Simulated assay, not measured.
Amino acid sequence: MAHNMTDDIIEEAEVWFSLFRDGTGTYEQRQRFTAWYETDVLHQQAYAQVSFAHQEGFDFTDLLASLPETRSHTPSEPSAGLWQGLWEKVTVSPALASTAAALILLAVVSVLSFGADPEYREYRTTTAETNELLLDDGTKVTLGAKSILLVEDFTDSKRRVILASGEALFDVAHDKARPFTVASDGTEITVLGTRFNVNKAEKRLQVALLDGLVEVRSGLEDSILPSFLQKKEGALTLRPEQSVTVRGGNLEPVQAIERDTIATWVEGRLTYKQTPLRDVVADMQRYMDHPIRVADGALMNLPVTATFQVVDVETVLENFSHILPIEVRKTSTGGYILRRAW
């Protein structure tokens, strides 16, 4: 799994986008794309960036077609099998092969950062960093570690942001005429004015409500994804001290949650009560640069009850074997592997 966006990832995303834009693609190619897209959050971000670039009129394939002496180019990647049968639909000039991703990134940066009236403003945090934001409508957002938030230009009828990754606590300014919507991976949380936390990890989104009411709609059609990856819709309403988790586009049953366990990360603490290990690890990973890998699927749903400071995340991880039936091994590169001890 990659840990930083690279030209190769952007280039792969462009190839997948070009393949499925006209609704084509074989069953095998769809399976390969699904595996690629779900393997890494960076793949999801790259695909979204490429989609946004095309929506703003940047047509990568038209640019390539206008250049002389184009020919099929296959990236010199170890995973060459992934590309077999894809590049026949996209021609790349040898001179552009090494700069294709850079051109896409330039278009995306122009859309997101340098336009006179950009469609999105991007806010992001790094490892263990948090950031407090005040949006144009008075809404306060605390952005958690390793998180990305895209803010659309608010209109007279709507306010909408996209949590691309990570976690955020929203204290929404009341405005009856303009509902506030947080979108993430085909799920939307809509409110008029309230306070709630959203935590996004790989294949999982959790919403926990502190005050007010929120509507959570999942499985919405996501225009950036091919139709075969879009989910069926479901909806529910959360009340204070309730939470809901979305996995794979499906809403799980609403759970009661203690108020003093919601968004404790804002105060520098992580709090868990019977929380699956996979969710705990996903949170801890945002406070560490080195990867954490759960080597045994049987451990994923192991319940964890613990409270600790975010500055102690690595120490707590190293001592997991004292509170859980697992073995923690540190690799030569600084990462961690978790295995069951039975």
Rank of each mutant, 00 (worst) to 15 (best):
A2Q: 11
H3P: 00
D8L: 15
E28V: 13
W36I: 09
Q44Y: 00
Y47Q: 02
V50H: 03
A65S: 13
S72I: 15
P75D: 09
P75S: 07
E77T: 14
S79D: 12
G81I: 13
W83E: 12
W83M: 11
Q84W: 00
L86I: 04
W87T: 13
L96T: 11
L103C: 13
A107P: 00
S110E: 11
S113R: 14
E119C: 03
E122K: 15
D136Y: 07
G138W: 05
A145P: 02
L150D: 08
E152T: 11
D153N: 14
D156N: 11
A168Y: 05
F170K: 01
V172W: 04
A173K: 08
H174N: 05
A177K: 15
S184T: 07
G186Y: 02
V191C: 07
T194C: 09
R195A: 08
E202Y: 01
E202M: 05
K203Q: 15
V207M: 05
V214N: 02
S218Y: 05
L220P: 03
L220E: 10
E221W: 10
F228N: 06
Q242S: 10
N250T: 15
P253G: 03
V254Q: 02
V254T: 06
V254I: 15
E258Y: 00
E258S: 06
T264E: 10
V266R: 13
E267M: 14
T271G: 08
P276N: 03
R278S: 02
A282N: 00
R286H: 01
R286E: 04
Y287D: 04
R293V: 14
G297S: 10
G297I: 10
N301L: 09
L302H: 00
V304A: 04
A306C: 03
V311C: 04
T315H: 15
V316F: 09
F320I: 01
